[in-house]
């Protein structure tokens, strides 16, 4: 890996900003350069709040990424907006609980994950973002599973019950991702 870019997009309250930040924290922990850039302003009020995270082994230039290596889309407006923007050869992770569609593209890898449902089963629909995050990390190996767990503990550890739910949902998302792309050496 030299540089990897991912856009997380959804509506307000789905935790896309936090998911991006958790990923950025993990990148720092592994000694990488990171940038987290949110959409801000009126965009936040509409259908698609999003953030882009760049993780890189080298100095990061542009924080604005028009065609990211990967997108995690949490709702339909985000799917419509970002699915066409994924770089050729990239990855699209779709929250199939809320999006009953898949992109009409053969040049990218797609994973349809019922993230809301997994979060609900794990104890809280608010954990949808960590299900998506788990799947993303499994599919890309951009940071290590154990690094992410450590970050979850540090950032969400204040409430023990909530942390446990998040850990479980993250693992569920992670295993879903592993089975979707096949066993990986880093797991």
């Amino acid at each position: 890996m030299k540089q990897y870019e991912v856009t997380m997009a959804g509506f307000g309250g789905q935790g896309v900003m936090v998911a991006g930040q958790l990923l950025a924290y993990s990148g720092i922990k592994e000694g990488k350069n990171v940038v987290w850039l949110p959409s801000y302003g009126p965009e936040m009020r509409g259908g698609t709040a999003y953030c882009t995270v760049v993780i890189s082994d080298v100095r990061i230039g542009s924080p604005i990424i028009n065609n990211p290596t990967a997108c995690c889309v949490f709702n339909r407006p985000s799917f419509d907006k970002f699915a066409p923007k994924v770089k050729s050869g990239g990855l699209l992770i779709v929250n199939s609980s809320l999006i009953s569609a898949s992109a009409d593209r053969t040049d990218i890898t797609q994973i349809l994950i019922p993230a809301n449902q997994m979060a609900l089963e794990g104890g809280s629909v608010r954990s949808t973002n960590v299900a998506m995050l788990g799947c993303f990390i499994a599919a890309t190996g951009i940071v290590e599973h154990k690094t992410m767990l450590k970050v979850l503990e540090e950032k969400l550890g204040a409430k023990k019950a909530l942390l446990e739910i998040n850990m479980n949902v993250f693992d569920a998302g992670y295993h879903f991702g592993i089975s979707a792309v096949g066993e990986r050496s880093h797991a």
Partner: peptide
């Protein structure tokens, strides 16, 4: 610019 204010970096 607005990005300097809004983006996060280590």
């Amino acid at each position: 610019d607005g990005m300097i204010g809004q983006m996060m970096e280590p």
